[in-house]
């Protein structure tokens, strides 16, 4: 799979490698706090939107509740960090707890199909947010602040924000490659088969429920990892910053805009959408007051509408049409 001639023919792998290269080089080229922040968020969304895509794009399970996994990852890291656990373990623990939650909710939710599944995920996400907002152990509405440690790599605590970018890239590389290998292996094919037809999938001798559950657990895991990264970087979380419906929306929007039928679609989406969002939010919003807070969402809406009418496969679709002939 990783021979040079294969990579050249594989557009997904090309985009993955180029994206990683870009994330490694850009912070050195343009070391500006605001830009670094946008890149950091882009890395987060690359992980979580790729994870969303395992469910939404490959399996056909549309979720509007990924903020639940994101938030659980963030809270797990924050609480374990404050209790003295190394964040290098905490990040993956965040993923593990999120995937456990995914496993638990998969039993009732996977009985639902299509529209109903999507609606139920909204309810799960919002209910969990409100629950955390009232749960004293996790600080309720006050949220959790990460304890001060000495500035060090071991505690992922830095004065200069550029280091956070490289931590994010490291976690991104690990996460993306694990997900890539899974999606390109037999499980990835089975998930796509389920998306196209559960009935047909059963004739191969596969239990669709089992594989949908695997999709949810994987998706939950890496979304949780992304949430943990958020917590380690911003060092303060509350239910409305890590569990809001807006996070779910952002995660799936990026996947949709980038393209849900290809593995690298969400990477492309995050690379283009996050900076646009951050700049419109901070620059225009800052200059013209609170009402422009909605502007980036308005822009999302317009992009989304245009894409759903003309390129349902997202930017990857556009790119593939552009490169037709050179890639399979």
């Amino acid at each position: 799979m990783f021979k040079i001639e294969n990579i050249k023919r594989d557009i997904d792998l090309m985009i993955i490698l180029l994206t990683i290269l870009l994330l490694l080089i850009m912070p050195l080229v343009y070391n500006n706090y605001f830009f670094l922040n946008a890149l950091f968020l882009a890395s987060l969304y690359m992980i979580s939107s790729t994870a969303w895509n395992i469910m939404g794009g490959f399996t056909g399970l549309i979720s509007f509740g990924h903020a639940a996994f994101f938030g659980i990852g963030a809270y797990t890291l924050a609480l374990s960090y404050n209790n003295g656990l190394s964040p290098w373990i905490g990040i993956w623990l965040g993923g593990a707890i999120a995937s456990l939650f995914a496993l638990i909710i998969s039993f009732p939710l996977l009985r639902l199909r299509g529209h109903w599944f999507a609606l139920a995920t909204i309810a799960v996400g919002e209910a969990l947010k409100l629950f955390f907002n009232n749960w004293d152990y996790v600080g309720a509405a006050r949220g959790v602040e990460l304890a001060r440690k000495e500035y060090s790599f071991a505690w992922i605590y830095f004065i200069e924000s550029i280091y956070y970018n490289y931590v994010a890239v490291l976690i991104l590389v690990i996460s993306i490659f694990i997900m890539f290998l899974i999606i390109r292996g037999r499980i990835g094919y089975y998930l796509q088969s389920i998306r196209e037809s559960e009935e047909t999938t059963m004739t191969i001798g596969l239990n669709p429920f089992k594989y949908k559950m695997i999709a949810m657990v994987l998706s939950g895991f890496f979304t949780g990892v992304a949430g943990a990264l958020y917590a380690i970087r911003y060092r303060y979380i509350d239910p409305f910053s890590v569990m809001d419906l807006f996070i779910s929306v952002q995660i799936c929007l990026i996947a949709i805009v980038g393209g849900v039928y290809s593995f690298a679609g969400p990477l492309l989406g995050a690379l283009i959408v996050t900076p646009i969002a951050e700049y419109t939010r901070a620059l225009i919003g800052g200059a013209y007051g609170a009402r422009f807070f909605g502007l980036h969402l308005l822009i999302y809406g317009v992009i989304l509408l245009i894409l759903s009418l003309y390129a349902p496969g997202g930017l990857m679709d556009v790119l593939k049409r552009f490169l037709r002939g050179r890639y399979r």
């Binding site: 009935e199 999938t201 059963m202 004739t203 191969i204 001798g205 596969l206 239990n207 669709p208």
Partner: peptide, 8 residues
């Protein structure tokens, strides 16, 4: 038996 088991 469910279809997937029979297929197996």
């Amino acid at each position: 038996m469910p279809p997937y088991k029979i297929a197996r």
